[in-house]
């Protein structure tokens, strides 16, 4: 099953982001297609958050995202992030 169709995985990723980035946001308020990074996004994550999340992903899912361009693409939204973790 593709990650974007796996509600459990998407909830786990939202929780991971909130916990790792120390954000005071209810995970239910994060939309699956919401933009995660930049000043226009609701969460407003930045490059240090990206690094934080990528290390957490490596520790939890044993997946390495070493290229910063790929990182931006993968972490565009919860759906793209979930598809990276679980391509299906």
């Amino acid at each position: 099953m593709k990650g974007s169709l796996d509600e459990g995985l998407k909830t786990a990723l939202k929780r991971l982001i909130v916990e790792e980035c120390d954000i005071k946001v209810d995970i239910a308020a994060i939309g699956d297609d919401d933009t995660l990074f930049g000043s226009d996004s609701r969460l407003g994550l930045d490059s240090i958050d990206a690094l934080e999340i990528s290390i957490a992903v490596m520790n939890k899912y044993n997946l390495l995202i070493s290229d910063s361009k790929e990182l931006r693409k993968v972490m565009r939204s919860i759906n793209t992030f979930a598809d990276f973790i679980q391509p299906g």
């Binding site: 790792e20 240090i48 690094l51 934080e52 290390i55 490596m58 520790n59």
Partner: peptide, 10 residues
Amino acid sequence: HSLPKPFHFI
């Protein structure tokens, strides 16, 4: 033997 959290390191 793991990577520290980036903000801990900073």
